[in-house]
């Protein structure tokens, strides 16, 4: 006690930080001693298994993941734009419809949408949806709900004076929206929309539910299939790293866009 009283506040902070490092080092040392390195290496870093995955995991799985994500994103963006406009409409029923849609699809798991469209709709209506259409609808319907709110917020973030200036120059409401408000709103929503693309990239893994043929495999499916074949976690680890190949650059892009927006204000 007299010791701690003798220390200044800064000295106490230094001691406390030292203790934190000590605990961390102890934990790592304990893990290193206890872990069965041989088994771990075999499970996660089996070089032979890894080699067998290439090049298909890139040329088929990675490409398909990106393709499915973009498919859903494109459809979701279009629908989200329409929903955002409805949400801002001066006609109340449009607003209600948009709000109901957004609340519904934001509130349910994407998994349910995949099941409904992948199995429910074909069974109930006896129609066979094309695989790509099913993926586009499933990812897009959910993505649209999030993007609609993002776009609406972006439009509302454009200062009212911009609208007034445009209308004062004789622009019609539609023209003012297209030429003045939308371009500015788009800049504002670009970072959150990119985030949405990251989310959709990860959600595209849900297509593994749909029972794909080999050429339609995306990363999660491909990894799972290889897991069964090789009895090794290595494919899963590599599939995970390949998701990062897509999402990390996008995340970096988001930060750069946000910095640019901050500078422009």
């Amino acid at each position: 006690m007299p010791l701690s009283l003798a220390l200044s506040r800064r000295q106490r902070a230094r001691v406390f930080r030292g203790v934190q490092y000590a605990v961390l080092l102890l934990a790592i040392a304990a893990f290193a001693l206890v872990a069965d390195w041989g088994t771990l290496r075999e499970a996660f870093f089996d070089v032979d298994v890894a080699r067998a995955l290439f090049p298909e995991i890139i040329t088929t799985a990675l490409v398909n993941t990106a393709f499915y994500a973009l498919l859903g994103f494109g459809f979701g963006l279009g629908l989200g734009l329409v929903l955002a406009m409805m949400r801002l409409s001066s006609v109340p029923p449009y607003r209600w419809l948009a709000i109901a849609y957004i609340e519904f699809f934001r509130g349910i798991p994407a998994l349910l949408v995949f099941i409904s469209l992948g199995f429910g709709v074909p069974l109930a209506f006896e129609v066979a949806l094309d695989m790509n259409v099913t993926v586009m609808l499933s990812l897009g319907l959910v993505g649209a709900a999030y993007m609609a709110e993002t776009i609406r917020a972006g439009i509302q973030a454009v200062p009212k004076g911009q609208w007034e200036a445009a209308r004062s120059l004789g622009m019609s409401p539609g023209r003012a929206m297209v030429s003045i408000v939308m371009p500015q709103a788009f800049r504002i929503v670009l970072p959150p929309l990119t985030n949405e693309l990251i989310l959709l990239t990860k959600d595209s893994s849900l297509v593994y539910l749909l029972g794909l043929s080999l050429g339609q495999f995306e990363l999660a499916n491909f990894g799972r299939d290889a897991l069964n074949e090789h009895k090794s976690l290595t494919p899963i680890l590599i599939a995970g790293l390949l998701y990062l190949v897509i999402t990390l650059p996008l995340g970096h892009l988001v930060r750069r866009l946000e910095a640019r927006t901050a500078k422009a204000r």
Binding site: P159, G161, Q162, E164, A165, Q184
Partner: peptide, 11 residues
């Protein structure tokens, strides 16, 4: 019309 806050189109 000329506004107090200019309202130029920033883009």
């Amino acid at each position: 019309m000329v506004f107090q806050s200019f309202n130029l189109f920033p883009h």
